[in-house]
Computed example of a mutant assay.
Amino acid sequence: MSTPEGSKESAIFRRYLSAVVLHAQAGAKAVGLGATDLYALNILELSGPMTPGELGTRTGLTTGPTTRLIDRLEAAGYVRRAADPGDRRKVIVEPVGRPADLDKVLAPARRAIGEILSEYPADQRAVLFEYFERAAAAYQRAAEEIA
């Protein structure tokens, strides 16, 4: 079932997505990073080390901007380039640190969302998290199709 564009449900969902993006941008700015920099750190934290090409694909950046992104994160001490253990000719980017104040900056929203989620019974939370997992995969696939 699809939610019709312009419906109340569609507007609520779009407001939610906009608020999530706005919060991520504000959080990145508060710790001295660009939104894409913080997004790249999140990708590395969730997925583990990867080649610069893979990181570029996941962030939607071309080669030049990906190199500058990695340079910035490496200079700030958040990532390092290392030889790929499976193929020493390749380079991988691995996370080595996080912005010191990131958890502090994100804590109020995490707390508020945690409180909202705690109001739902366990079976409804399970549905919500199943949705988050499936929707994340759907958005990832859609982004890959667009790119």
Rank of each mutant, 00 (worst) to 15 (best):
R72K: 12
Y131N: 07
L17D: 07
E74D: 14
D84Q: 03
L69W: 00
A24M: 11
D71W: 05
T62G: 13
E74K: 06
A11S: 14
Y139F: 15
G34P: 01
G48C: 09
V79F: 02
V79L: 03
L38R: 00
Y78N: 00
L106C: 06
S10T: 06
Y131R: 08
P95Y: 00
E145M: 13
L33N: 02
E9N: 09
D71H: 07
S2W: 08
A136E: 12
F132C: 12
R110Q: 11
T66Q: 02
Y139T: 11
K90R: 15
R81I: 02
R111L: 11
S18N: 13
L117S: 06
R134M: 05
T62K: 12
Y39T: 15
P95R: 15
A136T: 14
T57V: 14
G86H: 04
F129S: 04
A35G: 14
S7R: 07
A30E: 07
A143C: 04
E9L: 14
A83V: 00
R125M: 04
D87I: 00
V21C: 08
G34T: 15
R14Q: 14
R134T: 05
G97A: 08
A19L: 09
G60R: 01
A35S: 15
R15D: 15
V127H: 06
L44Q: 02
P95I: 10
E119W: 05
E144P: 01
R98P: 00
E94A: 11
S7H: 06
E130P: 02
E115K: 08
I113R: 05
P49D: 13
S118H: 09
L46F: 12
V96Q: 05
E115P: 01
R15T: 15
I12F: 08
P99D: 03
V91D: 01
F129I: 03
T59R: 03
A26G: 06
A142N: 06
G60D: 03
G86Y: 01
N42M: 13
R89L: 01
L55A: 02
R80N: 08
S10R: 11
A126Q: 14
T66D: 00
A107E: 11
A138E: 08
A136V: 05
L22H: 13
R110K: 08
E145K: 15
T63C: 04
E119M: 11
M1Y: 08
L44V: 05
G6C: 05
S2N: 12
E133F: 09
E5I: 15
L44A: 04
G114Y: 03
T66Y: 01
F132Q: 12
A75L: 06
E144M: 12
K104H: 09
R89G: 02
S7D: 10
L44I: 11
K104S: 10
L106K: 06
R110H: 09
A126R: 10
A137N: 10
A11P: 03
K8W: 07
R141N: 10
I113K: 04
G64S: 11
Q124G: 03
K104Q: 13
A137R: 12
P121I: 04
E45L: 12
A75W: 04
A82Q: 07
E45T: 14
G60F: 02
A24K: 07
R98A: 10
G48Y: 05
S2G: 11
A135R: 14
A136K: 07
S47G: 10
A126E: 09
P95M: 13
Q140L: 14
L22N: 11
Y16G: 10
G86E: 05
A126V: 04
P95H: 04
N42F: 14
G27W: 04
E133P: 00
E5G: 10
